[in-house]
Amino acid sequence: MARLFALLAFLLLLGSCSAHGPSSQLLNVSYDPTRELFRDIDAAFARDWREKTGKAMTVGMSHGGSGKQARSVAEGLPADVVTLALAYDVDMLADRGLVSKDWQKRFPYNASPYTSTIVFVVRKGNPKQIHDWPDLIRPGVSVITPNPRTSGGARWNFLAAWGYARRLPGGSDESARDYMAQLFRHVPVLDTGARGATNTFAQRGIGDVLIAWESEALLARKSIGDDKIQIVIPSVSILAEPPVAVVDANVDIHGTRKAAEAYLAFLYSPEGQEIGASHFYRPRLPEVAARHKGEFPDVNTFTIADIAGNWKAAQKKFFADGGLFDQVGPGRGDKP
């Protein structure tokens, strides 16, 4: 519904003000938990753009699950830029010719202006003493993580757990698979999205530990309070790199290429990075990162390239029909 309104609003604006010349409106199609982040980014960018060009520029937003948003763009939502949760979703747009094939080289750091990582959220005082990945599969521990088949964020959770098990000394695909099977035996509820899982854990009181993006965990701690939950950083985790890309096919029609590129570049600017950090995304820029060192403790991270090569391979191996999640996920019927 929100998508529909964004589309309608956009079309109206397009019709009213861009009959001639380039549009003064950008549409950023993003995923769910970035609402607060981009509200601030968009305001700051509009100011920056006016100072530099003397022209007005407003940014419309559309939010939803990452995969669903990519699908909308593929089906004709006139996005100028996409800022999604998974490179896999942008790859799909590249396959359909909407985004250039080399999109990951268009912007620094694999076209990912900020990062996050996967952490644990536990109840105050950490009653079950959960400190690292092996603790999740101890008897009596109940783990909340969303369904990786429906949630982009949950795919990072899955890969973080897999990467931990696979990269253990002497670890193999078999031993990692075994760990994942044990882990999912401890999962009582599979929400369809990351926010849903956070609510199940925090509001419904289900589970002893929530696996979540650090940005979501910090936001939850801010809104729920550290008298209720606390964050545990595991010994190793994955480097989550949410991607950004210009939708080439659309900006050329709208005449917004320059603005769209400036918008994404703004995310890498000191001001953009500072805003990202204030919304709990880890900055890339060393000077900004240094300022926020206290908020983002050092984590030993691996990347998706280290454990699966790329997203396409990961998708096929883990999350496709009959993939590893289907084999070891909950509800297989062979519970002990």
Partner: peptide
């Protein structure tokens, strides 16, 4: 339904 089901494959999906 998806909020209340738990969405466990083969059980409540």
């Amino acid at each position: 339904v998806i909020f209340i089901a738990g969405n466990i494959p083969r059980l409540s999906e």
